[in-house]
Write a protein that binds this DNA or RNA. Structure first.
Lengths: 192, 192, 192, 192
DNA sequence: GATGAATGAGTTTTCATTCAT
DNA sequence: TATGAATGAAAACTCATTCAT
C-alpha cells in the first residue's frame, strides 16, 4: 500500500496541479503556479507533499485510479464483448467530458521520468487488469487475437489522441466527440 | 517557406536534440545535454540556433517533414484504400524501426507550447493532406464515414501509443511490433 | 504614475546598485555584485525587480527625483536670479557631498540605452521645470539669453564634470570643492 | 612612447570601434559588432589588437591626441586670453561637428575602469598642458582664479554636456549649436 | 498550521578569444 | 594574412525548497 495524503486541501491542491501540469507539462510547471491556482501559499504545498515529484506521483495515481474506477466499477464483465466494450467506451466518453485534463495528463506522463515505482506499479496493475479482460474476450473468440495489452494500448491511445486533437482546437469537449470514436475502436478490436 | 538552417553540423545537432528531447522532454532537457551528445560546446549550439525554442521547432519540422516524405512519396493514391493503407502502414512500420524517437517526439510535442506558427502550419498542412486522402477513401465508400481528420488521428494515435508502450519496456523495436497494429488499424477504418 | 517598488529592502538594494553601477557602469555590473553588496542572495534581487534593466530604471528615477527634490523643494523662485541660483548651487553642493555617486550615475546614464519611457519622461519633465526657471530669469533680464535648457545643461554638466574629476583622484568630496564652481557657473549664466 | 599599431586597416578598425562604443558603451559592445562595422572578420581584429581592452585604449589615445592636436596645433598662446579662448572654442566647435562621437566617447570613458596607465598618463599630460595655459591666463589676470585644472574641466564638461544633449535629441550637430556655448563658457572663465 | 520572503543551484544565453583552414 | 566556426567562462535569470514569523 502506498501511503497517500488525504483531505480536502489536498484534493484542491491536486486539482490545481492537474490543471497546471496539463497546460504546461511537468517540467515547465513551477510549484508557485500550482500554489497560486490552489489559492494557497507556496510553502503550504510542502506541508502536503515533500517535493514536486512526489506531488506529481500522487496526482498520477489519483487520476489513474479514478479512471480505472470510472471505467470498471460495477462493470458486467460476463456480458458479450461488444456490449461490455460499448459500456466501457461510454464511461470513457463521460470521463473525457468531465476530466479531459486527467486523461491527457495520464497519457502524456505515462512514461515520465519522474514516475516512481509505486506509480509504475499501479499503472502496470491496472493495465494488466484491462489486458486480462481483453484476453477473456479473445478466449471467447469475440475479438481479434494479438497481444492483449498492445490491443488495449492501441485502442486507448487512439481515443486519447482524438481527445487531445479536439482540445488543441479549443473546441469544448462534448460527449459526441469521444463517442464518435466508439465504432472505429470496436472495429479495431472486432474479429475479422 | 520557412528559413531553415542546414549543413552536416546542423543535422548532427538536430539528431542529438532529438535523442535528448525524446529521453527527457523539451523542458527537462538542458541545452548542455544536447551539446554534449552532439559532441560540441554549448556555445556552438547558439551558432546554429538562436535559442532552444527555435532549435526544437527546427527539429519538429524536420521530423514532421521526414515522416510525411517517408509515408507519402511516390504513394499510389489511386489504388484501393486497403492496398494504399497497407502500403502507408508498412512505411510507417519501417519508419518506426528506423526513427522511433522521431515518432514519439512528434506525438508528444504535437501540442507543445513552444511550437511556433511555422511548425503548427506545417503540421496542419500535412494533417490536411492526410485527411484529404481519408476523405477520398470515404467518397469511394472504401472506409467508414466520420470526420476524416479525427479518423486519421485515432488510427495514428493508436500506432504511436503502441510504439511508446514497447519502447517503455526496453524491448528493441522490430518490424513485427508495429506491423501487428496494421490489421487492427484497418479494422478501425474499414466500413461496417 | 509609474509603479514603484518600495520597502526598506528595496532601498537597500537600490543603494547597493547605485554604488556598483557608479563604480563599474551599468553593463559591466553583474547582478551578483549588486546582491553581494546588498547582503542578499542573487535570486532575491529578482523578487524586487524582474530584470537588471528594470532595477536600473527604478534607481535612475529614484535618484533623479531625489535630486530634484533636494534642489527645488521650498525654493524661493521669486527671489532675484543670483540669490536663487546661489541657493540652488549650495543645495547642489550639499547633495554632491552626500550623494556624489548619485550625481555621477545620473549624468553618465542620462543617455543610457536601457532607460525606459518612464525614466526618460521623468528626466524630461524635471529638465523642463529647470528650463522654465531659467527662462523666467531670462525674461526678467537677470541672466544671459539663449536656449534655457542648453544653458542649464551647460552649467550642470560643468558641475558634474568637476565632481567626477575630483572623485577620480580619490580625494574625498568636501563641500569646498563643489562650492568652488559656484562663481564660474554664475559667470556662465550672468548677463554680459 | 607607447607602442602604437598603425596602417589604414587599423584606422578603419578604430573608426568602427569609435562608432560602436559611442552607441553602446564599452562593456555593451561585442567585438563582433566592431568587426562587422569595420567590414572585417572577428579574428582579424585580434591581428591588430590583442584584446578588446587594448583596442579601446588605442582608440582612447588616438581620439585624445586628435582632439589635443585639433585644439592646440599652431595656437597663439601669447595672444590675450579672450582671443585665444575664442580660437580654442571655435576649433572645439569644428571638432564637435566633425567628431561628435569622439568627444562623447572621450568624456564618457574618461574614468573607464579599462583605461591603462598609458592612456591615463596621456590624458593627464594633455590636461596638464591645458591647465598650464589656464594658469598663464590667471597669472596675467585675464581670467578668474581658482584651480586651473578644475576650471578647464568645468568649462569643457559643460561643452560636452550640451553636445550630448543635442545628440540625444537626434538633432544633427551643426556648428551653431556648439558655438552657442562660447559666450557662457567665457563668462565662466572671465574675471569678475 | 499557514505564509511568502529568501536562498542558491541550475538553466539559458552571450561573447571575448582562439585556431584550423 | 584573413577568416569565421568553435570554445567555455561568465552573465542574466528561474525556481524547487526552506524557514522565520
Amino acid at each position: 500500500m502506498t501511503s497517500t495524503v488525504e483531505g480536502p486541501q489536498v484534493e484542491n491542491l491536486l486539482d490545481a496541479a492537474l490543471t497546471t501540469f496539463d497546460a504546461l507539462g511537468y517540467s515547465a510547471t513551477p510549484v508557485p503556479a500550482i500554489a497560486e491556482r490552489a489559492g494557497i501559499a507556496v510553502g503550504s504545498v510542502y506541508r502536503y507533499f515533500p517535493s514536486k515529484e512526489v506531488l506529481a506521483n500522487a496526482l498520477y495515481r489519483r487520476e489513474k485510479q479514478r479512471l480505472a474506477d470510472a471505467l470498471f466499477t460495477g462493470l458486467d464483465v460476463d456480458a458479450p464483448a461488444d456490449a461490455t466494450f460499448a459500456a466501457i467506451w461510454e464511461r470513457l466518453a463521460d470521463f473525457a467530458v468531465e476530466h479531459s485534463e486527467a486523461l491527457c495528463f495520464l497519457e502524456l506522463h505515462h512514461h515520465g521520468a519522474y514516475l516512481d515505482t509505486a506509480s509504475r506499479e499501479l499503472a502496470a496493475s491496472i493495465d494488466a487488469q484491462i489486458a486480462a479482460l481483453v484476453r477473456r474476450w479473445q478466449e471467447r473468440g469475440q475479438i481479434r487475437g494479438g497481444d492483449p495489452l498492445l490491443l488495449h494500448v492501441q485502442a486507448f491511445g487512439g481515443f486519447v489522441a482524438v481527445l487531445r486533437q479536439v482540445r488543441m482546437c479549443g473546441t469544448p469537449v462534448t460527449r459526441a466527440v469521444p463517442m464518435s470514436t466508439l465504432e472505429p475502436a470496436w472495429g479495431l478490436l472486432s474479429p475479422t
